[in-house]
């Protein structure tokens, strides 16, 4: 029996993040080969770029895990809006940081609540609901944009220290992502919420029959997704030094790719936070590689699109198999 246990430890489903990690390293080596120089700096640059993506992707992962093909398409709008709120509310003023952050986080939470009202209350398919919400959010961002002058270029020192600074030679963002990942892993593995979320994603009817509070679980999940999106938007704007329209748009596909690559099931019921983080790193390195190879931005879109479809096709059992189950 013990032997069996040991074998299980290394099964694909539990440790798929190991593959992504090795994949990322392989990609990094490929990148070194292409650029002709071997440098840890380039890995670090990719890691830092991946950290911002990882924060949103973890939120996306939680929403995807609720099952039935759920996805949060309101992420781009959330990021952009949070970035504008940073410029408008904080605008580099250290005295306004606390209030500003609270408002941004609450905005993220409100977006989550609104999403879950649409999905649970109005019974709109998650994809459509969050798509519509995204349009509303980007309108808000446009509103902010037209009511704003040029003051948006200043960033608060504390926030800059978090988004770009280092401690003991390691980027602070790595600590932030590590903390968020540990928190989410803890939620998923140790709490009733985590178990309920995973159960819900596998079979919502069975989860209900087993007595779980499936509505509460979903509402909290959308809130968490919104909050993580807002935090990421804040940090992204701090790092890039401002806010501009459409700044969140590129993140949407990347979150999906990162989540799927990390071993999370698109159909729900299996989440892997560590895998998501490495999945994001992988995607960032692919993008850097494409940039290094001087691919046109259009080609980059095509490759990313094909990558997504291919990953999902490989990751989904075929029709015949599912019918047998």
């Amino acid at each position: 029996m013990n032997e069996n246990k040991a074998k299980k430890k290394f099964s694909l489903s539990d440790a798929s993040w190991v593959y992504v990690m090795f994949g990322s390293i392989a990609m990094w080596l490929a990148m070194c080969a292409i650029s002709g120089k071997f440098s840890f700096e380039s890995l670090q640059t990719n890691i830092i770029a991946a950290t911002f993506l990882a924060i949103v992707s973890i939120g996306q992962m939680l929403v995807v895990t609720t099952g039935k093909g759920a996805m949060d398409l309101s992420i781009p709008g959330t990021i952009t809006l949070a970035a504008f709120l940073n410029s408008m509310l904080i605008n580099g003023d250290p005295n306004k940081i606390v209030v500003g952050i609270i408002i941004i986080v609450l905005t993220g939470a409100a977006i989550g609540v609104f999403n879950s009202i649409c999905v649970l209350g109005l019974k709109i398919p998650p994809m459509i609901a969050t798509l519509a919400v995204n349009y509303i959010l980007s309108s808000f961002a446009m509103m902010c944009n037209s009511h704003m002058g040029f003051e948006r270029l200043v960033q608060a020192d504390v926030l800059v220290a978090i988004a770009s600074g280092k401690t003991f030679g390691i980027y602070n963002m790595i600590f932030v992502v590590a903390a968020i990942t540990i928190l989410v892993v803890f939620l998923l593995k140790k709490t009733t919420y985590g178990k309920s979320l995973i159960a819900l994603g596998q079979n919502d009817l069975a989860a209900y029959i087993a007595g779980m509070h499936i509505n509460k679980v979903q509402i909290f999940t959308y809130i968490l997704g919104g909050v993580l999106g807002a935090i990421a938007g804040l940090l992204i704007s701090v790092r890039s030094g401002g806010a501009f329209l459409g700044m969140g748009d590129d993140y949407l596909m990347d979150t999906v790719a990162g989540v799927v690559l990390g071993g999370t099931l698109m159909s729900g019921g299996r989440a892997c936070a560590v895998g998501t983080v490495f999945g994001c790193l992988f995607i960032r390195i692919v993008v850097t590689l494409m940039q290094l190879a001087q691919f046109d931005i259009g080609v980059q879109y095509i490759i990313k699109g094909i990558l997504i479809v291919a990953i999902i096709i490989i990751g989904t059992p075929s029709r015949r198999k599912t019918e047998q189950m």
Binding site: G69, M253, I302, G305, V309, I313, S318
Partner: peptide, 16 residues
């Protein structure tokens, strides 16, 4: 044949 959600397929295709 692959039994994947149409939304994901078409979302991926939109990038292509």
């Amino acid at each position: 044949y692959r039994n994947i959600p149409a939304v994901i397929m078409t979302l991926g295709a939109s990038f292509i």
